[in-house]
């Protein structure tokens, strides 16, 4: 299963690379931690609980001449979930939620990228979480790009989306106000 997903990922990446030789590839700056994957979910309906995934990797392709050909691939280590509370994180890693021993990785593979004339950008793709794959639509903001002071070239985006836990077969009852999770991805890539 894992190998199949990996080979699919590699195949997809190869197709993307070979069909768009002009697109520039950017690797997420996880080493410098200029990329983050955050989530928030309501606690009892009274406040937002924030958390993040500390370990992930990925890349994106972006061609300024043809922005709609852009694509993104991200792989997340689900065990790296961090809500700043050890016992809660242990529970989130358990079978009640992410079941990380069985599903150690989550994946996002983009399927389309559209920069609309009104300035909004919509990224669609497949999110695989808890062994379930669903299409998701991500609202994207292109934050900026350019040379960094250390000889590299960087480009960054922010994306937000909302997923329903039951769509990913996570059925632990956290209450009526806590059925959906908001995901926020702040990604900065360094051009290869």
């Amino acid at each position: 299963m894992k190998i199949k997903i990996l080979s699919t990922t590699l195949l997809a990446a190869t197709i993307v690379l070979s069909s768009q030789v002009v697109a520039e590839t950017y690797d997420l700056d996880t080493k410098g931690a200029h990329a983050s994957i955050q989530f928030r979910i309501q606690h009892l309906g009274y406040s937002w609980l924030q958390g993040r995934f500390n370990t992930f990797g990925g890349s994106f392709e972006y061609d300024e001449q043809d922005p709609d050909s852009a694509s993104v691939q991200v792989e997340i280590d689900t065990a790296s979930i961090d809500s700043n509370h050890a016992r809660r994180d242990k529970h989130l890693r358990s079978k009640d939620f992410l079941n990380v021993s069985e599903y150690p990785k989550a994946y996002f593979e983009s399927t389309s990228f559209n920069e609309n004339s009104d300035g909004t950008t919509i990224l669609t793709g497949d999110l695989t979480l808890h062994g379930v794959t669903n299409p998701v639509t991500i609202n994207v903001e292109h934050i900026g790009h350019g040379s960094d002071p250390w000889g590299g070239y960087r480009r960054g985006f922010e994306g937000t989306t909302r997923i329903s836990l039951k769509d990913y077969d996570i059925n632990y009852n956290l209450g009526p106000k806590s059925k959906e999770v908001e995901l926020s991805l702040s990604i900065e890539g360094i051009r290869r």
Binding site: N84, H85, A86, R87, K90
Partner: peptide, 8 residues
Amino acid sequence: LISTADGR
């Protein structure tokens, strides 16, 4: 060690 893993 479970409950104090995050420094709490």
